[in-house]
Design a binder for these strands. Structure first.
Length: 595
RNA sequence: GCGCCGGUAGCUCAGUCGGAUAGAGCACUGGAUUUCUAAUCCAGCGGUCGCAGGUUCGAGUCCUGCCCGGCGCGCCA
C-alpha cells in the first residue's frame, strides 16, 4: 500500500468485515486527514453512519472496530472521541520507515519518489488549449493550456498513455477571408509559401476583417475562397495550409515558453469524416431534419420557449458546425486512438454544449459506458475590476504580452534583489534573464493552478510574484534554499546512502516528515479528481513545514548538527527538495538551483 | 422565462463529495533573532459561510424558496 491513507482504509475495511460480517464489505471506511492535530493525524468517521444501519450506538461500534483493528505497527492505540470518531496518531518510527523506503532518485529519468504507476494504464485524451488559428492566442487560452498540460503530466506520471490534443480552430468561413487577404497583400510569397511569416497575426486578421466589411468585391472573393476551400481546390488549400502553419508557429512559441507539449489535430482533420457521421446519425434514426437542418434531439435539453433544443449537426445550407466536428472527434478518439478517458479542458460557458456532446456520443454508441468523458470546466480570468480581463483600451490581452509582462516584472524582482547587498547572489546577465524567465512562467502557471478551477479568479501580477504566501516564488525559493544547504554542507544529496537512518525526534522534524509521507496520497487524489489546486496546497504546506524545520528558533540545526542527526536531517532536506521538484514538475514548473 | 456556475475575514482565496471549536495568505498589531540564505519563524486581531426555512447525531457542504452577480439557451465556434 503506497499511501498511509490507503493503508488505514484497508485496515479499517478489514476490521469492519471481521466485526460485522460480509454485509459491511461495501461500507466506506471514511478515513480522512484530521484537520486538527489534537485529533491525531488521520480519523475514520464510519462508525456514526454505521450506527443507524446496525442499530447500535456509534461509540460502541467504534470500540468494536478499534478492538478488531490491526494497526499496531503504524500508529498508537486509536482513540475514540466525540460521537464516535476514531482517531489515529502515527508512530514516528512508522513515518521514518516509510520515508526510508523511498528509493534514491535515479541518475536519469523521472524521480517517482516511490509512487507506483496505475495498475491498469489506459489511453487518455486531453482536449486542451485549442485556439482559433485565425487570430493570436489570448488570455482566454491560458487556463485551458495550463490546466490541460498539468492534467496531462499527472496522468502520464501515473503511467497512462496521454494524447494532448490541440483541437485548433483551423476551418470555417473566416479562413476564406484570410486567404484572400493574403493573396492580395502578399502576392510575392505565394510562390514560396514556406517562407510566409506574419509577425503580427492579430493585425493581419483585423485588416482582413476591415477589408471584408468595407469592400464588397473583397467579400465576394472571400466567399469564393471559402467555396474553393470546401471544394478542395489545391491552390487555395496550399495558401490556407501555409497560413495555418504560420499561425501554429506563433502558438508553438508560446507552448515552448510555457513548456507545454501538445499534438495539433484541428477541426479540418475531421473534414472527410463529417458526412459519414451525419449519415450514421440519420441511418440510426438518432437525427431528424428540422427546418432544413439535421438535428439530434436529446432528452432534457430545451430552448427558450421550452421546446426541445436540437444539436445541429448539419446546417440547412449543408455546412457543418462545431457540434459535428466535436462528435466526429469524440468517435475518432474512442475508435481510432483507443481512448478510455477523454478530458475536455474547456471553460464552464461550454457546459451545455459538452453535456449534449456526451449525451449524443452515448446515444450513438461512440462513447460507450466504459469510456469516461469529463468536462473539466474552468472559470474565467478576470481583471482587477472583476470584469473579464481586457487591456486598458478594452481589447483582448495577447498571451504573448501577458507572458512578457510576467517575465519583465520577475526580472525587476531579480534586479532589486541583486542591488541589495544582503540578498545578492552575484548573478550575471544570462543568469538573471534565465531566472526571470523561469520565475515569470512559474508565477503565471502557479497562480492559475492554485485556484479552484471551477471559480473565476482575478489576475494579479503583484500577488503571483510575491515572495510570501502560496506563490511560485516562495516555493522556488524554498527549493533553491534546500539545494543550497546541500552545497554548503558539502554533501551531494544523491550520494547519501539509501540506508542512512532517519530519526524523527524534534517536533519540526516530525511535522515535516508527516507532510512528506503524504505525497503519494495527494498525487492519487489529484489524478482522480484532476484538481491541481490540491497539489499546490500540498506543496505550500511542504514549503512551510520545511521553513519551520530549518527555522533558527523553532527548528533544528542541520549542517552543524552532531553526526547521526546531521545525516538524518540532510536526508529530510533531500526528500523535501525532491518532493517539491517532482510536485512542481507535475504542475509544469521548473525549479532553480539558485535564485 | 428555463438552466448552469458563483456569493466564506477589510482584500485575494481554500475548504479533501455530511464530520469535531470554518482555514490560509496579504494587510494590521505584537514578539523572536549576535543568520546553517531575514525572500524566515511564532503569536494576536479579524466570520450571522448572501437571506429564510427544511432534512439528522451532525450542514459552508444536501433539499426548497428568495436576493445579488456572471454565463448559456436553433443553424458562430
Amino acid at each position: 500500500m503506497e499511501s498511509i491513507l490507503a493503508e488505514l482504509e484497508f485496515r479499517v475495511r478489514q476490521a469492519l468485515v471481521n466485526c460485522f460480517g460480509d454485509g459491511c464489505r461495501d461500507v466506506e471506511p471514511q478515513v480522512r486527514l484530521s484537520q486538527d492535530e489534537r485529533f491525531g493525524d488521520y480519523q475514520s468517521n464510519c462508525a456514526m453512519g454505521l450506527g443507524k444501519k446496525l442499530g447500535k450506538k456509534p461509540r460502541e461500534l467504534a470500540r468494536e472496530i478499534v478492538d478488531g483493528l490491526d494497526v499496531a505497527e503504524l500508529c498508537e492505540p486509536p482513540d475514540i472521541a466525540g460521537p464516535g470518531f476514531i482517531n489515529f496518531r502515527l508512530k514516528p518510527s512508522a513515518i521514518a520507515a516509510r520515508l526510508q523506503s523511498i528509493p534514491p532518485a535515479p541518475r536519469e529519468g523521472v524521480d517517482r519518489m516511490g509512487v507506483k504507476t496505475a495498475t491498469e494504464p489506459i489511453t487518455v485524451v486531453v482536449d486542451m488549449s485549442s485556439p482559433n488559428l485565425a487570430k493570436e492566442m489570448h488570455v482566454g487560452h491560458l487556463r485551458s493550456t495550463i490546466l490541460g498540460d498539468c492534467v496531462a503530466r499527472i496522468l502520464e506520471f501515473k503511467g497512462h498513455q496521454v494524447h494532448r490534443i490541440n483541437h485548433v480552430g483551423d476551418w470555417g468561413t473566416q479562413f476564406g477571408m484570410l486567404v484572400t487577404h493574403l493573396r492580395n497583400t502578399r502576392p510575392e510569397v505565394l510562390g514560396n509559401l514556406d517562407q510566409l511569416r506574419l509577425p503580427d497575426l492579430e493585425s493581419f486578421y483585423v485588416s482582413a476583417k476591415a477589408e471584408f466589411d468595407r469592400d464588397p468585391g473583397f467579400a465576394a472573393q472571400a466567399r469564393k475562397a471559402v467555396t474553393q476551400l470546401q471544394g478542395g481546390d489545391p491552390e487555395t488549400l496550399r495558401i490556407w495550409k501555409a497560413f495555418c502553419d504560420e499561425s501554429l508557429r506563433h502558438c508553438g512559441a508560446i507552448y515552448d515558453r510555457l513548456d507545454v507539449r501538445i499534438e495539433n489535430c484541428g477541426e479540418s482533420f475531421y473534414n472527410d469524416l463529417l458526412p459519414g457521421v451525419v449519415e450514421e446519425l440519420l441511418s440510426k434514426g438518432l437525427a431528424t431534419i428540422s427546418e432544413g437542418a439535421v438535428c439530434v434531439f436529446l432528452d432534457g435539453f430545451v430552448n427558450r420557449e421550452g421546446n426541445p433544443l436540437p444539436m445541429i449537426v448539419r446546417k440547412s445550407d449543408g455546412g457543418y458546425n462545431y457540434a459535428t466536428t466535436d462528435l466526429t472527434a469524440l468517435k475518432y478518439r474512442v475508435e481510432q486512438l483507443g481512448a478510455r478517458r477523454i478530458v475536455y479542458v474547456v471553460g464552464v460557458t461550454q457546459k451545455q454544449h459538452l453535456q449534449m456532446l456526451f449525451a449524443a456520443g452515448r446515444k450513438a454508441g461512440w462513447a460507450p459506458a466504459n469510456v469516461l468523458t469529463e468536462h473539466l470546466a474552468f472559470g474565467s480570468v478576470l481583471g482587477p475590476d472583476g470584469r473579464p480581463f481586457k487591456t486598458r483600451e478594452g481589447g483582448t490581452v495577447k498571451l504573448k504580452d501577458l507572458l512578457d509582462e510576467a517575465v519583465f516584472r520577475a526580472r525587476q524582482v531579480v534586479e532589486s534583489n541583486e542591488d541589495d547587498k544582503a540578498k545578492a547572489r552575484g548573478l550575471n546577465e544570462a543568469d538573471r534573464q534565465r531566472v526571470a524567465e523561469t520565475v515569470g512562467m512559474a508565477a503565471v502557471r502557479y497562480f492559475d493552478l492554485s485556484h479552484n478551477l471551477a471559480s473565476d479568479y482575478k489576475f494579479n501580477f503583484d500577488h503571483m510574484l510575491a515572495m510570501e504566501g502560496n506563490t511560485a516564488p516562495y516555493m522556488l525559493y524554498a527549493y533553491a534554499r534546500i539545494r543550497s544547504i546541500g552545497r554548503k554542507a558539502g554533501v551531494d544529496y544523491a550520494d547519501i546512502p539509501a540506508d542512512t537512518p532517519i530519526t524523527l525526534e524534534h517536533e519540526s522534524e516530525l511535522k515535516l516528515a508527516k507532510v512528506l509521507v503524504r505525497f503519494p496520497e495527494v498525487v492519487s487524489t489529484v489524478a482522480g479528481e484532476l484538481h491541481p489546486n490540491i497539489l499546490t496546497e500540498y506543496l505550500y504546506e511542504t514549503s512551510k513545514a520545511f521553513s519551520l524545520f530549518y527555522d533558527r528558533v523553532h527548528g533544528v540545526r542541520v549542517i552543524d548538527a552532531p553526526p547521526p542527526a546531521r545525516m538524518s536531517r540532510l536526508r529530510l532536506c533531500d526528500l523535501a527538495a525532491r518532493t517539491l521538484r517532482l510536485g512542481l514538475g507535475l504542475l509544469g514548473i521548473r525549479t532553480l538551483e539558485q535564485m
